[in-house]
Amino acid sequence: MINLFGYRLSWAQLAWFGHRASGLGVLLFLFLHIVETSTVLLGPEVYDFTQTFYQNLPAKLGEVLLMAALVYHALNGLRVIAMDFWPSLTVYYRPLTYGVIAATIISMVPLGIIMTRGYLPWG
């Protein structure tokens, strides 16, 4: 049993926590992206140099994580919106939550392979 703030962590609560964490993570990347893109104002050499920061495996894995955050945040957001429009759906909150988590994992398998193919043995 996992506790968060001393209270048993349910999948629905984890989904909410994940929604916040993924949203903040994506926002953080947005700021990073603005800074990185704005280096173009300092000339093409500086911009090209900043782009080299992304050309390595840890940065690529970070991008995969970013994609996972985006996919999860979008799917979970749709779940929350659907419940807002049709409150009767809340009765199925457990399968819906499991569905969002499963769909995120399943989507990330091909996406992860495509994004990291340059680093894979057959890439």
Binding site: W16, M83, P87, T90
Partner: peptide, 26 residues
């Protein structure tokens, strides 16, 4: 309400609390 469903899991009378909350918003 942030739809964490802790209330639904805690309710000893199995009331569909989040459903009621969202019906009030509607």
């Amino acid at each position: 309400c942030r739809t964490t469903f802790n209330c639904v899991e805690a309710c000893p009378r199995d009331i569909k609390i989040t459903k009621a909350i969202l019906e009030v918003t509607q």
